[in-house]
Write a protein that binds this DNA or RNA. Structure first.
Lengths: 221, 221
DNA sequence: TTCGGTTTTACGGTTTCCCGTAAGAACAGG
DNA sequence: CCTGTTCTTACGGGAAACCGTAAAACCGAA
């Protein structure tokens, strides 16, 4: 099992229970911190001392308080530590349940496991640690089923751009202007309308509002 | 200190840490459950046995799963147990931070303490238990500062209904029909438009799409 | 270059939305 | 019962979105 583990989690109550979970594995060296910056510092210090950590368990969302931080999210922390220690195993422990967001963590940040805070989360965390230690990736069971929902649509970068502009309150008829600013190729109003229609048709939606709600749910905007 | 305490909390990780916090008080009898119905049953049973609980610690939001429940929220649980044991002390332990919601718990449900899940929540919970045991009410200090979030808007049930209909793809002009079906009082199209305009004005939005995106973000629809 | 096919853009008519105004209903106080 | 206030509803003109069609641009292959 892992020898040296660091946990970044701002909620004291959650932090305590992760401690207790780790105790069952009898890990010799564990560190618990409440801020991302703190986690980053300890990890870098451990590298300098020639005794790096071999597992990071982190939350995604950290609340702001009087103590202003450089790193304000789990994503930023992971990106930062991967730069100095790419082989560090990472398990994310968060309430986030949107598949698109979680997929993104595996793909772009290269995390090794994701445990969702839920009814059986302590047990899932133990399982995740065992799997990741064995060199496997860990994804919770209930995530996989929600990924392969039917009526799904592969949103292109262009789609996401349009939807993001709408969600920001840009008028549909003004979108061509914004697309030209960013040198995005199809910029005609008809192209925007066509794309929106395609999305709505595939998903069997009738209104833009519905589309925005859906995209927020799955986390692509 | 309290002699017999029951905790209702669906997240295992949080439940574990509450257990550990209670251990520091050396409370002779504690019960930990993951569902509201379960909590209700144990409390009623304890009354029948002539050894009622003297403190309930509960979350507000409970996730649904295959195990269908009668009581689906902490509010419902509190209301239910207060009917059979009005003198039971209640501390709510939740992530909810909106002052209006929390105030409502003290006023209508008569809870004795509120602890927000946050950085120092375990310590706050201990303090809350001491205060409530001493017959005092407990409200966290940081609650007052979170009151002054600007650009916020208190969404009414009517607002949420309208927004939900829009997010389901209902045409704006058809909303009055749906409101009449549900016997919701202001049902005119102008009333719907007026409400939408008010929301957009306060939040400085220009389009419905923006409004839907915002509401999805803060989780009210 | 020319040709065929695809993608992008432009344009007009219809529907829906937006917004201001005013009429009507509900209600409290005198 | 009347009066003023507030809330709700009805209506109409103008803006935006929707939708189909046709012209224009693009692109690979002959």
């Amino acid at each position: 099992m892992f020898k040296k583990v660091i946990i970044a989690e701002d909620y004291q109550s959650t932090n305590i229970s992760v401690q207790k979970t780790l105790e069952t594995f009898g890990i010799p060296e564990t560190k618990y911190v409440y801020y991302c910056d703190e986690a980053s510092s300890w990890i870098r210090k451990a590298i300098r001392d020639g005794q790096p950590y071999d597992l990071l368990i982190t939350d995604l969302a950290f609340e702001e308080d009087f103590n202003k931080q450089q790193l304000t999210s789990g994503e930023a922390l992971i990106k930062s530590v991967k730069e100095v220690q790419p082989n560090l195993k990472v398990i994310v422990f968060s309430v986030e349940s949107r598949p698109a967001i979680i997929d993104e963590l595996f793909k772009t940040l290269g995390i090794d496991g994701y445990v969702r805070k839920a009814r059986r989360d302590a047990e899932n965390l133990k399982q995740a640690m065992q799997d990741v230690y064995a060199g496997k990736k860990y994804t919770p069971a209930d995530l996989k089923q929600s990924i392969k929902q039917k009526n799904t649509y592969e949103f292109s970068a262009f789609d996401v751009t349009i939807l993001s502009l709408l969600a920001k309150g840009i008028l549909q008829k003004d979108i061509p202007f914004y697309l030209q600013q960013k040198n995005i190729k199809p910029s005609g109003l008809s192209s925007v309308e066509k794309r929106l229609n395609q999305m709505k048709e595939v998903l069997e939606f009738s209104k833009n509002e519905q589309l925005i709600a859906y995209c927020k749910d799955i986390g692509i905007i």
